[in-house]
């Protein structure tokens, strides 16, 4: 996790966007390792596949379409203000953690509402060894349905934003070509 902190700082400092997107992949991979040691194997699996794989590819795709270098400069006063805001927010959040249950606490509130039932009964009621799968697809399938719709909407949105844009530009070019020939004819 300290390594994650180091990579995060590097992302904040480096201005070459290519290196930044590579670093964000590394960041996700270290995060996946952290999930494994924290017993969240399913989550680690997803993070390794998604964060280190797909999102890096998407970032690189965007960089190929835009620029590779971040512009230099950007005002000293702005970064000072930003740092102040961030420091204050962080201090408030750290103050908030003093009421949090300790790390690995068995009697913390979140372990006592519905979770005991998932752990004790899901073997009999759903019949699957992997509790995460049975909660995901059976007990909380409405949630998952919603998430699937979000992914669907995001894909449709990307199609709507980029798929249409390209066609319109081609249309404009065709129009310009058409008007040019018309102008030449008249």
């Amino acid at each position: 996790m300290l390594m994650m902190g180091a990579v995060g700082l590097a992302i904040a400092r480096i201005r070459d966007l290519f290196a930044v997107s590579m670093l964000s992949g590394i960041f996700s991979l270290i995060g996946a390792a952290a999930y494994v040691v924290l017993d969240a194997v399913d989550v680690a699996f997803t993070e390794a596949a998604v964060g280190a794989g797909i999102s890096t590819v998407l970032m690189l795709g965007t960089l190929a379409l835009t620029t590779r270098k971040e512009k230099l400069g950007g005002g000293k006063s702005k970064s000072t203000t930003a740092f102040l805001v961030v420091a204050v927010t962080g201090a408030v959040l750290v103050y908030g953690t003093f009421d949090m249950p300790r790390y690995g606490d068995k009697i913390a509130a979140i372990h006592h509402h519905v979770v005991p039932r998932y752990i004790e009964k899901s073997g009999e009621e759903v019949g699957m060894p992997n509790i995460v799968t049975s909660v995901l697809a059976s007990y909380r399938s409405f949630d998952t349905l919603g998430e699937v719709f979000v992914i669907f909407t995001a894909a449709t949105g990307v199609l709507a934003i980029l798929g249409r844009a390209r066609r319109r530009r081609e249309d404009e070019e065709a129009d310009e070509g058409g008007s040019d020939t018309k102008g030449a004819a008249s």
Binding site: D42, F45, T46, A49, I54, M128, P129, N130, V132, A137
Partner: peptide, 20 residues
């Protein structure tokens, strides 16, 4: 995914990344 770690989300991403 019922027995070990895995499931639709991960499988979809891995399948997609093969094509990518």
């Amino acid at each position: 995914g019922d027995f070990g770690p895995g499931g639709g989300f991960q499988a979809g991403v891995i399948f997609g990344s093969g094509f990518i």
